[in-house]
Write a protein that binds this DNA or RNA. Sequence first.
DNA 1: TTGAAAGCGCTAACAG
DNA 2: CTGTTAGCGCTTTCAA
Lengths: 340, 340
Amino acid sequence: MGNRHISLKDLAAELGVSISTVSRALNNHPDISPEMTEKIRQLARERNYTPNPLAMGLLKQQTKMIGVIVPDLVTHFYSSIISGIEETAKEHGYYIVIASSYENFQKETEAVENLLRTRVEGLIVCLSQETETYGHFEKLIGNGIPLVFFDRVCFEAEVPTVVADNKEAARKITRHFYENGCRRIAYISGPDHLNISRERKEGYLLGLKECRLIPCSGLQETCNLSPADATMATARLLSRRPLPDAIFGLNDTIAYAAMKEIKRQGLKIPGDIALVGFTDEFHSTVVEPALTSVTHPTFKMGQTAAGLFFRRLTEGFGFAGQVVLETELVVRDSSVKNIQ
Amino acid sequence: MGNRHISLKDLAAELGVSISTVSRALNNHPDISPEMTEKIRQLARERNYTPNPLAMGLLKQQTKMIGVIVPDLVTHFYSSIISGIEETAKEHGYYIVIASSYENFQKETEAVENLLRTRVEGLIVCLSQETETYGHFEKLIGNGIPLVFFDRVCFEAEVPTVVADNKEAARKITRHFYENGCRRIAYISGPDHLNISRERKEGYLLGLKECRLIPCSGLQETCNLSPADATMATARLLSRRPLPDAIFGLNDTIAYAAMKEIKRQGLKIPGDIALVGFTDEFHSTVVEPALTSVTHPTFKMGQTAAGLFFRRLTEGFGFAGQVVLETELVVRDSSVKNIQ
DNA sequence: TTGAAAGCGCTAACAG
DNA sequence: CTGTTAGCGCTTTCAA
């Protein structure tokens, strides 16, 4: 496979000068005569020379690569965040290498190892849902390897993190339900060890309190984040009597699964049950009824995460801190009872 | 940042042997005594040694990286294909570096250059919708750099490609419409230079012919693949009199945009207009009515593309050839008139 | 103003 | 069985 990339050596040979001269000319070193410099740059352009990043990486001990670990690639939420990360990385001359944990602890651990093996300079990570112990990240922190978490986070004291205003968003949802006449407001959460799940539940409970509603364990369900499990959680809620009159789900997956199950049982949204999700703009408007939802600024979340990464890379451990991104409750048909 | 990776040198120093001895022991070279080998491997394990891929890459002239270029990352179709590519790549010990063209010719060209600059060993590409000239790929072919196209392809004679059975799928859709009583079947296509657009139109026309329907230019619309433009194309179709009684759209974006616009105008699906899309399993069942669609084997398409890539990498230019993946027409509510 | 040499981490002849 | 050496492409002292 004739993948013949031109090297400094090639250029030097062709011009009958030394490699170092070529190197200097290409780096605008002042010691080289203007004519020589021009001649060399000219040839480099003709031959389409580009420096070999492997050689540079070896020399400078930096690969210009960032490892990114996400629970999955196919959910719009993550792919959109990745786009944001990629854009900011590109601005800094960095590339990203993506790995999926598939929501699996084991795979996440392996991904960390694999990425480190490739000599990425650091990691930007969203925890898998199974992850409850954090030794694989502790090691990185100990070794001074730049690390940033987004959305599902840990080590907030030591590591820069980006999250949505989960608690506030959940509070807004709950109050929105109340204002639309709902009194039996249910919440389908995920595993408790996930900050997003905990924080949103806090917001839910706070919202209930503000509306002087009494929390009821029969209106709180938990599921792992698979569609199948979310469907079952929804079914359990729908078996309660009296029926809940509102449901909100932790994330996209749950919201859509809930929507399908509610419809399957022949119940009307929002007439019988109002529904709100945490999800993205696009799909919320495709489903019927259009889904009221808290939309994440996903692209921005990616950009922010990458931004924090580069701060960490250049400033070292001088700072950690959490960036909280505001969300917006976009009211559509699925939650407005009086419209119906 | 103390990213201190252990090197062979470190191990050698600690054991008081030469670097090559360590290297050989770690590579199971038969020349090294079993005890020495064991001692070295033991220490390597303790110190958590992993070979530096930059050094290896420099030496062997291979980076174990594949460049992947997609029109965008956030469409499920592409992210799912990427997952497939990633899986197969991983099995071969390769990593993928992803770049988005954002459906833009200029960005695609840059992506090719950038990826080559990083010394990826080759490229797996889905063409951007704007791409009508192929000089940037011709260069690769000329230089013997492995290249594979999927879905939207060119240079089928020289380059391995993976596509869906576009023509057959479109034919099936058309006949399905006919069998459900539709007689004014419309098609919203994309740019003619895209094979997927051309092939699906061929299938559409073939289907019409088989059903003894006469093609009508008023029932054929073209759009660029943006939701906005797809919406306008749909609106144009809906302004025709008599109204079309069926529409199928080139891809996900178009199908969903069409669905929204049809509903917005107060028309019923499938009652007034039957609708079929080329799209994926998941979203087809979330929308209402559930969307009849041709589902692509996206994950498999990714695996296949990667498989072809490795064949190219190892076997060289011995083969090109096109793999055609079968699609399935999954009938749901949006196209079945008599159910209503 | 330019060249020679060392070294980043590794493997593979070539010597011992 | 193990060590020495060269070289992958590059930058950077150190010499000239």
